[in-house]
Design a protein around this nucleic acid. Structure first.
Length: 587
RNA sequence: GCACCCGUAGCUCAGAUGGAUAGAGCGUCGGCCUCCGAAGCCGAAGGCCACAGGUUCGAAUCCUGUCGGGUGCACCA
């Protein structure tokens, strides 16, 4: 099913074409002034500006042509040449009825036949996840769902940080403590113990200790660097230890992402491309794409048109080890080989932008990216009240686990306060608290535009009124409640009708879903979906406050409203799903 | 120093290709539960869109400059 605005744009575009102008001027969009009209076309103004002539006169000619189409209930020219458009209620009701039968609810098909790899999450092995990891997980997960809904074949990859200096820091820390000697005994030939010498709790203590020590002491840092290099060269004891770190961390990470409702198709890490690195470096050397500089092997990625300084990409450090620039280039080779994607999207902190610029340039220079467009979809920092990256009052970073627990706790409290959940089974109460808490968290984050830094406010992340995730769930739950009653009485909704301003506004918003999904894809911006679904819930709430469904005596109207409720619920649930938010049966 | 991003209501944030009267939530004030869930609905107050120029019929949006904030600039990720 074609999106309504697209259909209207096509009609208006034809009218412009018949006037000898580009059909692009026929773009029709939802009105900025709903008090004046439902849709607007501003193309006459743009066309007049480009080609000269009077915009009002042109608008008049276009409108004359549009009058031949019966779907327009109102065609007006306003101000300097806006074309204001209304559709008949029967027309929009018929569109809604058609939507009921469309399982995709009119979703765009922009991704049909196209494949993308989306790289998000990016946690580090052996480091506990903190609130800073929230954005990549939530935004990436939402974009994955959105692109998939728009027809793309999507492969989501967590891309763990598991091959860099932090591994060397850990290995050297374990060595210094002498708690697992066997892994450092060069005479030992294996096999190494199957049981990990460290637990997750150990890692949570080991890493910060190692990191702090390395920062304070250059010699300690040198030990870590050396261990990193040896690990990457394949020293068996280090590899065995690394494997343990990885396995132990993976369990914790999986649990944490599961509680967020975030999933990945691939659990690859930097280390997984290790076998590709040596041949890749040889290839760069053989083709003269890499050169020695200050002891390191680098790729010059500067271009004459650069306004800023563009440092070279370091392929091989002077001590022979690699950092994440190298693994990121190798990962492109891996992805092109395995998925041959049309797009590789990196959902990573905006502060990494220069890094990706370098990686992309190196990959293109060497012709490694196949048909893929490489794109960094960065996001802003989550700041504390001081405008600096968020820290707890104690000065540490807040663990993601604690944040989720707090949100759930608030949700549970609210449920008991409202009294309504008192008779629910304990298991359901816990389930509701989880869904509501996560919804508050995700929506509070996703509602901000991706690129702007925003202030982390615990209160806002655990708030359930106003423009929040739970408000949206609440709207959906109220519809479910109506539908339950209807089912008890054996009633089934019929085709929606539009007989009131509230119904009209609601149906128009429902019909705008494809526009929101398309815009959100184009901008890689889930906040557009947030904006859309919040308005939808508002339109429903107004309708709900103004009209009764079950107690409506006109039976035909009652069933039509039931149908409208059903459709609204479907759209609500769908968009919330795109945001990674689940709706409980009741709350 | 060079480069990029940002500055919108008391607070936190939206604002899609340059469009009409710049929006929302929170907070404040005032209404609405003897009919489907008040985590809701309705209304009011609240703005020199940092500042100064420019382009345009039209600028929060584009250009230039100033001030203020953030970020990045070779072996950390």
């Amino acid at each position: 099913m074609t999106a309504l605005t697209r259909e209207l744009s096509a009609i208006a575009g034809r009218a412009f074409a018949e006037e000898g102008l580009s059909p692009e001027f026929g773009l029709v969009k939802a009105s900025d002034r709903p008090d004046l009209c439902q849709f607007q076309c501003n193309g006459a103004l743009a066309a007049a500006k480009k080609g000269g002539g009077n915009p009002r006169a042109l608008a008049l000619k276009v409108v004359e042509r549009l009058k031949g189409y019966s779907i327009f209930a109102k065609l007006e020219i306003a101000g300097p040449g806006f074309i204001n458009i209304d559709l008949a209620d029967t027309t929009i009701a018929a569109r809604a009825a058609a939507l009921v039968k469309d399982a995709t609810l009119g979703a765009p098909t922009s991704g049909a036949g196209r494949t993308m790899v989306i790289d998000y999450g990016g946690p580090n092995v052996a480091k506990p996840m903190h609130v800073g990891h929230l954005r990549s997980a939530i935004i990436g997960d939402s974009l994955k769902r959105l692109f998939r809904a728009n027809g793309w074949t999507v492969v989501g990859d967590i891309h763990l940080g598991d091959w860099g200096l932090q591994m060397g820091q850990l290995i050297s820390e374990v060595a210094l403590r002498g708690t697992a000697q066997i892994y450092f005994d060069e005479a030992f030939t294996g096999p190494y113990p199957a049981e990990s010498p460290v637990t997750m709790e150990d890692l949570e203590e080991l890493y910060p200790a190692a990191s702090t020590a390395c920062k304070a002491d250059p010699e300690r840092l040198e030990l870590a660097r050396k261990a990193t290099a040896e690990l990457q060269l394949g020293r068996p004891g280090y590899l065995a230890l690394w494997k343990h770190f990885f396995t132990v961390s993976e369990i914790g990470l999986k649990r944490e992402y599961a509680s967020l409702g975030v999933e990945f198709d691939l659990w690859n890490g930097e280390a997984s491309v290790d076998p590709l690195i040596a041949p890749m470096i040889e290839d760069f050397k053989a083709r003269g794409l890499a050169e020695m500089s200050e002891g390191a092997l680098v790729v010059n990625v500067a271009e004459p048109s650069d306004k800023k300084e563009m440092p070279p990409l370091i392929l091989l450090k002077s001590n022979g080890s690699v950092n994440y620039e190298t693994t990121d280039v190798a990962t492109i080779i891996e992805r092109v080989r395995d998925q041959n994607p049309d797009l590789i999207l990196y959902v990573v902190d905006q502060r990494q932008h220069l890094h990706f610029e370098q990686v992309f340039r190196a990959a293109k220079k060497a012709g490694l990216s196949g048909k893929a467009v490489l794109e960094h979809a960065g996001f802003g920092t989550m700041n504390g009240p001081d405008g600096k990256p968020f820290k707890t009052r104690a000065g540490g970073v807040m663990k993601l686990f604690d944040l989720i627990a707090m949100a759930n706790e608030e949700a549970k409290k609210r449920l008991t306060e409202a009294g309504i959940g008192a008779d629910y089974p304990a298991e359901e109460q816990a389930d509701i608290a989880q869904k509501v808490g996560i919804a508050a968290l995700k929506f509070a984050d996703l509602a901000n535009y991706r690129l702007t830094d925003y202030m982390f406010d615990l209160e806002r992340f655990t708030k359930f009124e106003g423009k929040t995730g739970p408000y949206l769930q609440y709207a959906a739950v109220r519809i479910r409640s109506i539908l339950r009653r209807a089912a008890e009485e054996g009633l089934i909704g019929s085709e929606p009708v539009v007989r009131s301003p509230e119904e009209r506004a609601l149906v128009l918003q429902i019909l705008a879903l494809p526009d929101a999904m398309e815009a959100a894809e184009e901008k890689r911006a889930p906040n557009i979906l947030c904006e859309y679904v919040f308005t939808l819930a508002q339109m429903f709430s107004r309708f709900y406050a103004e009209h009764h469904v079950m107690s409506e005596h006109d039976e035909e109207l009652r069933l039509a409203r039931l149908g409208l409720c059903g459709l609204t619920l479907d759209v609500l649930v769908k968009v919330l799903d795109l945001l990674g938010i689940e709706v409980p049966e009741r709350m």
